[in-house]
Design a binder for these strands. Structure first.
Length: 575
RNA sequence: UACCCGGUGGUGUAAUGGCAACACAGAGGGUUUUGGUCCCUCCGUUGGAGGUUCGAGUCCUCCCCGGGUAGCCA
């Protein structure tokens, strides 16, 4: 095989959905066009699981020169709210996708759907049932036994038409009648045992108000909405697999404008994370988090506030792939995706989270120098900045150990380290309070090492970040961590609920952090790397000119923490 | 236990009858003024048993295991 053949064969591999769509296009199905849709129900905020679906639907459309619609699947007035339809639009846009003028609502099709229902009745494929909900359940049979036909199943077309019209007119109270498809009560697929198509719901709809009191069920509305919009490929999650025969049945029994192909894929599961709208709502309602946009939430709005970038989420969605296997993706992959993106784009600054005072004894008290610091070693175009240095500094508490363990390269009594972009300093004395806590370090600096290099070529193993006490800005820093302690938060004993697995330390707030003076003018939402600590962003809700509030998006990888942990475990096992 | 859908390293995805690939995680090493980044090495013969074939993760049969489905939710 020559080189050319090799590179030609090395085409990007397609997932099973794209493979299938590519085949359809190759066979000129739908005249070779591709049209998808993202159809959220506006009953909650979008989360990272929805991002997978958004990236898939909008991504597929773009790759095949097609279009993707945004459609609100709003057929249940009891659960849906305008707040959600607004947040959903904001989130999809923020992720970087555009539906142009193609924003639709299933509720916008209510009249057409009604007509399709009438068509079904006329053809003898639907009937009004007057059994109660409980009776319908009893008649349905079980997973292993066939169902029984409703005594109302053989009403005449005229009677069905009349009843359905009166249902619409509001003559009946909720629960007294439903419209059902006439399919097969003995079907091994329970979905096909005369599924309900319409139910009476005397509730105000967020868009249609009180214009309707009958609302179509998902199985009836969804396939027809797809057909009305000329969708070619209707991508949905695995739990609708059993519903596909019904999707096809409805389209085959009315004069639908086209027949989209439903394809199911596995929804996203993330370790240490809950992705169920019902449970996320519970976290919000019961006050476990501050709201849908709490930075610990896996919602798009929460992740945005936490400091995630749209690019990182899109990259993540590409990496996880699309398949039919129910799997759990490691949260580490998401963390890697955001670190990777932020590493390239986040300006570096120095911020001390837990300040320890350091006095440079041989440095003049009335002197301030401005030292040159690189803004981003990954991006030469990011330039440099000047950071002030003076006699009194803060360093990170954890960067000093009175009795340094093996492999600890940071500051200790008598030891010399480098202050980043500044000088080598040597610890000469340790000041403690009455309780024995270290409250201040006395150090000397070597004027020859300005900028961080020694003319005599001597090496130091540690480089510490620092800020000048007189120039620093005080900030509140919110350290966010995983919301749950267990890989699978649903794993509980007896009748406990998932909330028992909440991580009590998912938010640690530090009040007296000191950051470089340049951050005073940072705008809400701006992202930074605090060198050696992690990626942070200015909180968009609580930060102000008076009080800087900074969120930790994700820590840097910390190989010292690993070494230390391994050392501790080694000690444990030898004891 | 009726029907439907799945099983490839610790995790997630590739390989479309022809040398099991990529990423994450983990371990080890190198570079380094971030214990970051970057670079290198190591870590699976595809749930099991048969069969077809020159050749099987891929096709066939049986078995085992996992998920979904009994809303007037989506």
């Amino acid at each position: 095989m020559d080189h050319k053949q090799k590179t030609e064969q090395k085409t990007e591999s397609l997932d099973f959905i794209r493979t299938r769509i590519a085949e359809d296009v190759a066979q000129n199905k739908n005249n070779g066009s591709v049209h998808t849709r993202f159809p959220p129900e506006p009953n909650g905020y979008l989360h990272i699981g929805h991002a997978k679906s958004i990236c898939l639907n909008f991504g597929v459309a773009k790759e095949f020169n097609g279009k993707c619609n945004l459609r609100f699947d709003d057929t249940n007035p009891a659960k849906e709210e305008v707040e959600y339809v607004q947040s959903i639009q904001e989130d999809v846009h923020w992720l970087g996708y555009d539906w142009e003028d193609r924003i639709f609502y299933t509720s916008g099709y209510f009249e057409k759907l009604y007509e399709f229902a009438v068509e079904l009745i006329r053809k003898g494929f639907a009937y009004v049932d007057s059994l109660s909900a409980e009776e319908i359940r009893e008649y349905r049979g079980t997973l292993t036994e066939p169902g029984r036909e409703s005594p109302y199943r053989n009403r005449s077309v005229a009677e069905n038409l009349d009843l359905f019209e009166r249902m619409r007119a509001g003559e009946f109270t909720g629960g007294t009648h439903v419209l059902r498809a006439k399919i097969d009560m003995a079907s091994p697929n329970i979905v096909m045992r005369d599924p309900t198509l319409y139910r009476i719901r005397k509730a105000t709809h967020h868009r249609t108000g009180d214009a309707w009191c009958i609302y179509p069920m998902y199985d009836f509305a969804h396939c027809l909405s797809d057909a009305i919009e000329g969708i070619t490929h209707s991508l949905c999650t695995l739990e609708f697999e059993n519903n596909r025969p019904l999707y096809d049945w409805v389209l085959d029994h009315v004069s639908a404008p086209c027949h989209p192909q439903q394809i199911e894929f596995a929804r996203l599961n993330l370790s240490y994370t809950i992705l169920s709208k019902r449970k996320l709502l519970k976290l919000v309602e019961d006050g476990y988090v501050s709201g849908w946009d709490d930075p610990r939430m896996p919602t798009i709005s929460g992740m945005r506030r936490r400091g995630f970038t749209p690019q990182s989420i899109r990259n993540f969605c590409v990496r996880i792939g699309v398949a039919k296997f129910n799997s759990i993706v490691d949260i580490e992959l998401l963390e890697h995706s955001i670190r990777e993106d932020l590493n390239k784009r986040a300006p570096r600054v120095m911020g001390v989270l837990q300040p320890l005072r350091v006095v440079i004894e041989n440095y003049s008290a009335d002197k301030t120098e401005y030292l040159n610091a690189v803004n981003n070693p990954e991006d030469p175009d990011a330039g440099t900045r000047q950071v002030p240095f003076s006699r009194i500094l803060y360093i990170e508490k954890e960067d000093f150990r009175e009795e340094p363990p093996k492999k600890f390269f940071r500051l200790a009594p008598g030891r010399e380290v480098r202050l980043r972009y500044a000088y080598f300093i040597t610890c000469t004395d340790v000041i403690k309070d009455e309780q024995g806590n270290v409250v201040e370090l006395r150090c000397t600096y070597d004027p020859q090492t300005r900028g961080g290099d020694s003319p005599d070529g001597r090496k130091v193993k540690g480089t510490l970040h620092w800020v000048s006490a007189a120039h620093a800005v005080t900030a509140e820093v919110r350290l966010y961590d995983r919301l749950f302690l267990k890989r699978n938060p649903d794993e509980v004993n007896g009748n406990e609920i998932f909330a028992v697995n909440l991580n009590p330390d998912s938010l640690v707030t530090l009040q007296n952090c000191r950051v470089e003076p340049g951050l005073k003018n940072a705008a809400p939402g701006e992202i930074f790397q605090f060198e050696r600590k992690g990626y942070f962003c200015i909180d968009t809700k609580d930060s102000s000119m008076e009080k800087l509030v900074v969120n930790r998006t994700v820590s840097l990888r910390d190989s010292w923490a690993k070494i230390e942990k391994a050392g501790e475990q080694k000690e444990k096992s030898t004891k």
